[in-house]
Design a protein around this nucleic acid. Structure first.
Lengths: 214, 214
DNA sequence: TGGGTAAGTCAGCAAGCGTTTACATCTAGC
DNA sequence: GCTAGATGTAAACGCTTGCTGACTTACCCA
């Protein structure tokens, strides 16, 4: 094996949003991000147990041992993915006006390409069997459902608050279920190839029925 | 060691791991059924890859090698589980009157105990990565959504048939998503501990909104 | 311009996986 | 009661897994 010296610049994907300028050939934070992106896609699509660390490392174009270095373990990488998905979810859905909730959900389900948002949703149904990861996911789901309910006028101390929260969680369940049914391993038609525009109508009816606008 | 004579009861229900059922000491069809039941629970709860054949065999109280004998492989056992779930699903939802669809879904999600129906639903989101299994599941899901749509007046050749089917699949997605969010690895509250009665109201609103009754 | 260290590489281990093989034991039919 | 085949058992096999430790390479700064 001759150690070639051609610029291993490879595909140079993920210009990201932060440092689009020249990329250092050795950049820990970028490597971390490459691993996170690859892992999120794999975990969301294939589940935790079916994904191997070698798969992830190959997708990221990075050595396997770096997963242990940066995330301690496969579990640690999974937890980092959950945290990242939670952050991003909270950021993108945080200030959704009450009347645009169905559109926001439709956008999430339809995703923005293969690397898109829908893999965040699918990730939330994947379990690693680890208690710490389960706790993170439960937190993300709880906050999301509370956020959705709040966007439709819910307040924690109102009477019947529990029922409203239950209804919000049914809506979340629908969104996540749809994301998984659309995913590559199932691809249920016509749901799988439905566009954002196709989804927004049914979703508006669904959300309005579960959480009537004020 | 009991010296009881094995009564010729071939269609004996599964002894719940403790019931001293009167069974033949060696009964292939019963062993098959024990494996199927144990496998369905494991696959539904933990997913395909996270479930080991030794887990299943231990749950069933049966030797590991018998999985290969009766189902060829772990894949074969998984496919048999999917087929069984599909059959049972079609049988129990086949003659649901149009106006009792939400109740039927609520009953499925709430399940009948831990070994209940909801594990069938959760199973439908689990993938083995095998193409044959994916095809079976896609068939079950397609038939289920068509059955649901048909119960609400859908006909395949009508105009707008595709949109109605999409809406039925959104309802299926909600049901399956809720079943998984309730499952032991996630247990999202208050959804997780909601009873059949708690679920039927939201589900009626959801189904009526997606598939308006005629 | 060197040297210290961060970043990345490589080969391999121990454990667990699905599966198979060779064998033991039970059951049914004569 | 005997025997052939059905049923169940035990012990591996070959392979993949997550992870590690010793190593090399690139980068930054004095």
């Amino acid at each position: 094996m001759t150690a070639e010296r051609p610029a291993p610049v490879s595909s140079e994907t993920v210009p990201a949003a932060s440092a689009p300028a020249r990329r250092r050939r050795r950049d820990a934070s970028q490597t971390r991000q490459l691993l996170l992106d690859a892992a999120r896609r794999r975990f969301a699509r294939d589940g935790y147990a079916a994904t191997t660390v070698r798969d992830i490392a190959d997708d990221a174009g990075v050595n396997v041992a770096l997963i242990s270095r940066y995330f301690s373990s496969k579990e640690g990488l999974f937890e980092a993915c959950l945290r990242a998905a939670g952050d991003e979810l909270r950021r993108t859905t945080g200030q959704t006006p009450a009347d645009q909730v169905p559109e926001a959900i439709a956008r999430h389900i339809a995703g923005l390409g293969a690397a898109g948002l829908s893999s965040q949703l699918a990730l939330l149904l994947r379990s690693s069997g680890d208690a710490a990861a389960d706790e993170i996911r439960r937190g993300v789901l709880s906050r999301s459902s509370e956020q959705l309910a709040a966007a439709r006028g819910w307040r924690p101390d109102e009477p019947g608050s529990e029922q409203t929260l239950l209804r919000a969680q049914m809506a979340i369940a629908a969104a996540i279920g749809a994301a998984v049914l659309r995913s590559s391993s199932i691809q249920l038609e016509p749901l799988s190839s439905a566009t954002e525009q196709d989804l927004v109508g049914p979703l508006r009816d669904l959300v309005d029925a579960l959480l009537p606008p004020a």
